[in-house]
């Protein structure tokens, strides 16, 4: 189970939960798993969030792999000037 840490933007959809475990082999799996656990969260994460998987930032990358012991941080997508 990957350990997911969600920033505050996600909390309205998680009922305030900021850390939870999700079974996922890829980012796409994770999005599905988040939606199953907290309806609407998967879509929100897909549209609005970037993620750091074991320290490395991934954005719009459904097929980036997630390991069973991975730590995944969700935070707002990064733009720039």
């Amino acid at each position: 189970m990957a350990r997911v840490v969600a920033c505050s933007d996600c909390w309205p959809l998680t009922g305030g939960a900021s850390e939870f475990n999700v079974e996922a082999a890829t980012v796409r799996d994770l999005i599905r798993g988040l939606d199953a656990r907290f309806p609407g969260l998967g879509d929100f994460v897909d549209r609005r969030m970037a993620m750091a998987i074991d320290g490395e930032i991934h954005q719009d990358a459904w097929f980036s792999p997630i390991e069973p012991d991975s730590e995944v941080f969700l935070f707002p997508k990064i733009g720039g000037g």
Partner: peptide, 9 residues
């Protein structure tokens, strides 16, 4: 660990 989550490398 960066304040927004990732670990620096």
């Amino acid at each position: 660990k960066a304040p927004y989550g990732p670990t620096y490398q």
